[in-house]
């Protein structure tokens, strides 16, 4: 299973790329594979204030609807507009396709998340 270095990972299978005070968020390769063909991504509004743990995004696959939780608190900064027309980009390249980003109000909220090695171990424990 593909798990790049230099990202942080949540137990709900989001990846986080930290760029200064901004957390760029997507879902992991494991998550996209489990979801199957993604047909729709319901995005949050720009500037929406989110609290860690909020259901910020909903991903609809052919099979299921899955929430993507806000891993940190802050304000929604960018959303990936490409996903409106081509949500399958997530299936094709889960780590190269961000979903949205959050301007963090408290970067220390990142402290609890796993690094690549931790996430790999987490995935193996799930098998």
């Amino acid at each position: 299973m593909n798990v790049p270095e230099n990202l942080k990972y949540t137990e709900s299978h989001e990846w986080i790329r930290v760029e200064g005070d901004v957390a760029v968020i997507g879902i992991t390769d494991y998550a996209q594979d489990a979801l199957g063909d993604i047909v729709y991504v319901e995005m949050p509004d720009a500037d929406l204030a989110v609290t860690k743990g909020d259901e910020a995004v909903n991903i609809e696959s052919v099979k299921v609807a899955e929430a993507v939780y806000a891993p940190v608190s802050g304000a929604v900064k960018d959303i990936n507009d490409d996903l409106e027309e081509t949500p399958e980009l997530i299936n094709k390249d889960a780590y190269g396709t961000f979903i949205y980003s959050i301007a963090m109000s408290d970067p220390s909220e990142l402290d609890g998340y796993m690094d690549a090695a931790g996430y790999k171990a987490f995935l193996e424990a799930q098998e």
């Binding site: 199957g36 063909d37 052919v62 099979k63 399958e88 299936n91």
Partner: peptide
């Protein structure tokens, strides 16, 4: 099987 390797689409 809900899907094979090539996927539902």
């Amino acid at each position: 099987p809900v899907q094979f390797a090539n996927g539902i689409l």
